[in-house]
Nucleic acid binder design. Structure first.
Length: 592
RNA sequence: GCCGGUGUAGCUCAGUCGGUAGAGCAGCGCACUCGUAACGCGCAGGUCAUCGGUUCGAGUCCGAUCACCGGCUCCA
């Protein structure tokens, strides 16, 4: 366990989800895991392992990888240790004594932890059975109190989290106070798995990735394309209402551009290698900002024109190491819902307020709660003056306060060129995702010479805000798929309604109804396959189509439809016109 | 990139000790003419990720590469 210089005070548990009791439980589970492993595999060296959200882990150094069979043996031994009800006994010794003891045992990782402790301090240990671990506690009274746990998986982890260090083997597990809570957690994991956007994307035919094209490059199928289209249209509508102007910029650019912006020196490892065009090096673009600046700089601007809000769904390409790619979440080509706002210093706080307002509207429409973080100047490496940082940070904070948004300070968490507001949204199953970001760029205006003419007739450096609300459209859609589980609201659903004839006599009326709906602007299809109605309804339910519209001879006679809402069931029979109006209204209002 | 795992039909997955490839669903054909979550019968579908090796013989064993999965590191 990670030790500190103040053994009596113990770790800070105030932020641990589930509180001290769960922390204690999982901490003890980690010890029991380590004692089982050291008994079964005497050759391992132990590193450390804390409680984590929902469980615990412990790191080991061993030449052989742990197999699933090993995990079963370890699990079985852990249960024996629990049955033996070994007491957790704490003890103390001097630091140097402790170092000597662990050096003698060849436990170099433990020696490292102990040597972090100031020389004069006491070191605490906890023992259960034959296993003695450096640890500040707290622990259960005895191993028998661990009632519900399960080892989940093994993974590699760098020693001290540094990729230049050797890789250890990390065994993960989960533990709860009662078997019922453990079951509930495992059930929740399974439910989350069902919502996985990679799985839902396949089931609903939304997108694909192809080896022949390359890893991390997304192909949007017609249905996924419609989801994305609706989300982008919503974005465009709201931006135009709020005085943004849409722009489009190239996908490649001369290296000169990125030399000026500084990306060439600071972001070279995420940019793809240059290509030769007429003897000049060009790059696929990793960022949109320099191009938006080009548009701004194309002519001089009066202070009277500001703010200027340029917005673009800008697709960028960045090199990501192969191991980090993940569905739509982490890709090599993605679309930033980018905007750069050029304004005067006086306008800054007001612009940030406007962004927060827009952001709130967008996120609420999708049904997200969110939390804000104000990330301030990094301690060491930063560009610009301290005055600039203070001014920009104050403007961000003022806007947050004015909007009445609660926020936390992320001390030193700003980019080296910008203080920022980062926003994490919370999805339907409680996970947090960082999407929106609002940054005051303290670098590019100077590098490019971004000016406006003030009332005094002189040039003044413009303030440049950089912001994205979805972040990456690909990722945002991926998160939204998991948020909704693929059950999109009517305004997003790729197919809003499928018309299902009750029997073959109604095929003509069904086809005519679908045609009428489409002419009315509804995304409607008709299912004329040679199948029973029940099968068609089942398919539509599984495809998560919001409305199924059953029509038979009765409806054909009356010009009516018998609608069925997914997950709800049959609705009142109504005229075709009434149903069309209902769906149009729901779609127009973008109700969740 | 690193550690571990996986890759068999469009999808989900079987495939024993190395002996020559199987199911369900989807698709296609036929039959059925059906009222709110799966009608029946038949047919077709595979360079077992790719390349190389061991072997009389490889889906199966070995190596490399690619992709994916779980983590680490990094990150929108």
């Amino acid at each position: 366990m990670s030790a500190t210089s103040t053994p009596k005070s113990g770790p800070d548990l105030s932020h641990y989800p589930g509180g001290e009791a769960l922390y204690r439980l999982r901490h003890s589970a980690a010890h029991i895991l380590a004692s089982a492993v050291t008994e079964l595999f005497p050759d391992v060296k132990v590193a450390g392992g804390p409680p984590i959200e929902n469980g615990f882990y412990y790191d080991f150094a061993r030449d052989q990888p742990f197999t699933p069979e090993d995990l079963e043996r370890i699990d079985a031994r852990m249960r024996e240790i629990v049955a033996e009800n070994q007491p957790f006994e704490s003890s103390e010794s001097s630091r140097d004594e402790a170092i000597k003891k662990f050096e003698g045992a060849g436990e170099k990782y433990k020696v490292h932890f102990i040597s972090q402790i100031p020389a004069g301090d006491k070191v605490t240990f906890y023992r259960n059975g034959r296993f003695l671990d450096l640890c500040r506690g707290p622990h259960l009274a005895s191993t028998g109190e661990l009632k519900a746990f399960k080892l989940t998986h093994v993974a590699g982890a760098y020693w001290l989290g540094n990729e230049r260090n050797e890789m250890l083997q990390r065994i993960y597990g989960t533990a709860f106070a009662t078997p019922a809570e453990l079951e509930a957690y495992l059930h929740q994991i399974e439910e989350a798995l069902k919502r996985d956007h990679r799985r839902v994307g396949k089931e609903l035919d939304l997108f694909s990735i192809h080896e022949e094209v390359g890893a991390g490059l997304i192909h949007w199928h017609p249905k996924g394309g419609m989801v994305r289209h609706q989300i982008e249209e919503f974005w465009k509508d709201e931006h135009l209402k709020r005085g943004y102007q849409l722009v489009y910029t190239p996908h490649i650019a001369s290296e000169k551009l990125y030399a000026i912006s500084g990306h060439l020196e600071n972001y070279a490892d995420l940019m793809y290698a240059p290509m030769d065009i007429d003897g000049q090096p060009y790059r696929v673009k990793p960022m949109n900002c320099p191009m938006h600046i080009m548009i701004y700089k194309n002519r001089k601007h009066s202070y009277r024109e500001l703010p200027i809000r340029l917005a673009e769904m800008g697709t960028v390409y960045r090199y990501e190491r192969s191991g980090v790619l993940h569905g739509l979440d982490r890709v090599r080509g993605f679309t930033v819902d980018d905007s750069h706002i050029f304004c005067t210093p006086d306008q800054l706080a007001g612009e940030v307020l406007g962004i927060l307002d827009l952001m709130d509207f967008l996120l609420k429409t999708f049904g997200y709660q969110y939390v804000c973080y104000l990330a301030t100047r990094p301690k060491d490496h930063f560009l610009g003056s301290e005055e600039q940082w203070a001014f920009a940070t104050a403007a961000l904070e003022q806007a947050l306060k004015q909007r009445g948004l609660p926020y936390e300070i992320d001390e030193g968490g700003g980019a080296f060129y910008a203080p920022k507001i980062d926003v994490k949204l919370r999805d339907a199953i409680g996970r947090e995702w960082q999407c929106p970001t609002i940054q005051v760029d303290l670098n590019l205006p100077k590098r490019f010479g971004v000016y406006y003419t003030g009332p005094d007739g002189q040039d003044h450096e413009a303030v440049m805000l950089h912001r994205a609300l979805y972040g990456s459209v690909e990722r945002f859609v991926g998160i939204y798929i998991e948020h909704t589980g693929g059950e999109f609201p009517v305004w997003v659903a790729p197919v809003q309604a499928v018309v299902i004839p009750a029997n073959p006599k109604a095929y003509d009326y069904a086809a005519d109804t679908a045609r009428m709906f489409r002419e009315g602007g509804m995304r409607a299809e008709v299912d004329l396959r040679d199948d029973k109605m029940g099968a068609k309804i089942r398919d539509a339910e599984l495809q998560k189509i919001p409305y199924m519209v059953v029509v038979g001879p009765r409806e054909a006679e009356a010009g009516a439809v018998s609608p069925r809402r997914k997950g709800v069931g049959q609705l009142e029979t109504m005229t075709r016109e009434a149903f069309l109006e209902r769906v149009q209204k729901e779609s127009r209002e973008r109700s969740a």
